[in-house]
Design a protein around this nucleic acid. Sequence first.
DNA 1: CGAGTTTGACCAGCGC
DNA 2: GCGCTGGTCAAACTCG
Length: 443
Amino acid sequence: MATATGDDCSNHDTEMRMLRGELDRLHEENCKLRSMLDQIAKNYNNLQAQLLMAMQKQAHLNHSEQQRDEMTSMSSPTKSAQQLMDLRPACAAIDNVKEEEKTREVSVSPTTTMEVMSKESDHIHTPPLNGTNNNHNIEDGDRASQSWGSPKSPRLEPSKGGEEQLADMPFRKARVSVRARSEAPSISDGCQWRKYGQKMAKGNPCPRAYYRCTMAVGCPVRKQVQRCADDKAILITTYEGNHNHPLPPAATAMANTTSAAAAMLLSGSTTSKETLASTNPGYFPSLPYPSTIATLSASAPFPTITLDLTQNHNPMQLFPRPPPQTSATFPLPLHGYAAQMMGQVQHSMKLPAMPMLQPGLGQRHASLVESVSAAIASDPNFTAALAAALSTVMGGAPPRNGPDGNINANNNNSGNNHFLPAGVGVLPGSPQLPQSCTTFSTN
DNA sequence: CGAGTTTGACCAGCGC
DNA sequence: GCGCTGGTCAAACTCG
């Protein structure tokens, strides 16, 4: 009996020792991760400050230029037109473009990818901010391709193998849906699509077409195209999946925006329902037009963000039409979309309106991403979600908020963050964060 | 002939 | 359990 008790004691001792060792190891790991997080926080703060400064500077510049233009517009029509280009979002341009809009057939073809974030803590680092398409295909292991996020998506393509069979968090998948007026049956967005099915959907006389990205073998991105039942001139395109290949430049801008939107959507779906519109009233000036473009819906089984480009105040109308020689493919001025997207959300949160800063065409991509990024970054819900996600990744470690209460992260998605350049982290710990990329082009 | 489309069949989830 | 529905497959077909 006594020996048995002694054996039990020694067993307990060894067990305790092992557990303690394990605890130490975990503690050490936790410290490492914490330091990494601190570093990320620093980077994020720096980048956010830079972004804020740049935006304020730009806003100030635009404002002063606009005032100057008002004083001199009578004598300098040429310059006025030029400024119209520079100040693309200016409301003054609305009327011009509206007329054009009536006769123009806007073929909108977004390409959206939703990225599933890796849950591995190894991926919580600051990835290179090259902002290229290469970021699409870094994480092969956790790509979301579960057939439109539907809970039922048992069959995966053979080429995908097991790498995409992570359906452990079905509710975390997001779609980006785009409504746009288009007579074209199909859309061109810089990506190549192959139709693999068509079905009659309930409640809609128009069939729904299923497309798969064929730009790369095994690319999991899919899209559904369907005409609106109410207005057949409206084409509804829904995207899901993540491109595992570089995207053409034309497909990047919208990609960035909708990626951010989708990220926002997911973060919002996991956080409170606070309204953020007044969070940073000075930070984000109000929009020159109502915010009814984008809606978020977290209705089951997956959250969906809808960009409604069919509204009269379509931001496209705010901008002069691009010159014909460049109209083959161009990214939409998504400042407006992003702003509206942030402005109106059906679901749970509102983001501050975006500044309508529109530098030159060449800078459009960057600035639009910045705008979306800024909105997301300024969103406490987003940061809360980020914190929660981080804590999840850290194995339950409490989220370490920055001095301002925001969790700070800087592109922690290990290479998939092509859409969130500076300062705006993708939910690093969010196991399935959508990375979307949408491009628009005229046909 | 290869690539893309069409279309009916199949499968799985969900609600009743 | 059964029917409905959405999503996918794959053979047949079309087109350049």
